[in-house]
């Protein structure tokens, strides 16, 4: 343990030292670390979020179940939510006159398994501090303008509860297949910083 020096040297060197120490202690190997990150990156994809939304757009019963119990509905699609700890998923629906936005003011909680790795802005001090105070200003920086008559609800994530926005189905997509609908769903649309 003596070779873990806190806050000394560059982060890259500290990590190198840490991995070496963990290997020496037979806690893990570099190969296991590489496998762990690959497993995460291959499974955690915004396409998962897109599939969920598209199903909710075409199947009103699924939509009802999704809004009532996000975990159970997502499990129906065979998507594993747990990435490193069990979390409760709450899906919040955009409707005419009502928009939802997700933030984690305390850190960076985020439905990784459904959206893929979070972007740097989501974890930034600016987003965390401002999303709850000035959501319209934040949305404007994403080029998203909502009318004054649209009420915005901001959901602050925790380690236990993760949120996902169910965007409104775009106009003119009546004939689109479920797969085509899923492809319309963007990661930012699922966070609420964009419309779909």
């Amino acid at each position: 343990m003596s070779h873990v020096h806190e806050a000394s040297g560059s982060a890259a060197n500290r990590v190198k030292t840490l991995v070496g120490a963990l290997e020496d202690a037979h806690v893990l190997t570099e190969r296991e670390l590489d496998a762990s990150i690959e497993a995460f990156l291959s499974r955690a994809q915004p396409a998962n979020g897109g599939r969920i939304v598209a199903r909710a757009w075409v199947d009103p019963e699924f939509r009802r179940r999704l809004l009532a119990d996000g975990n159970a509905a997502v499990a129906e699609l065979g998507i594993d939510l747990a990435h490193w700890a069990p979390v409760k998923l709450r899906v919040v629906a955009n409707e005419p006159g009502r928009h939802n936005l997700i933030v984690c003011t305390l850190c960076s909680c985020y439905p990784l398994a459904l959206l893929g790795p979070s972007p740097a802005w989501y974890k930034s001090n600016a987003y965390r501090s401002r999303a709850v105070r000035d959501p319209r200003g934040v949305l404007a920086e994403f080029g998203t303008q909502l009318g004054d008559d649209v009420e915005i609800t901001v959901w602050d994530s925790t380690a236990e509860v993760r949120y996902l926005v169910l965007p409104q189905r775009p106009a003119g997509t009546k004939r689109a297949t479920e797969d085509a609908l899923a492809a319309l769903v963007t990661r930012n649309g699922l966070i609420g910083t964009a419309l779909v």
């Binding site: 990590v15 991995v19 762990s36 893929g116 740097a120 802005w121």
Partner: peptide, 28 residues
């Protein structure tokens, strides 16, 4: 804290060591 910095490419990690930190935490 000023305006947001929104990257056009949004890499999951900006340095190799960041991916390592993420992986160690996930593993432990």
């Amino acid at each position: 804290f000023g305006p947001l910095e929104i990257e056009s490419d949004e890499p999951a990690f900006h340095h190799e060591w960041e991916a390592r930190v993420f992986a160690i935490n996930r593993f432990l």
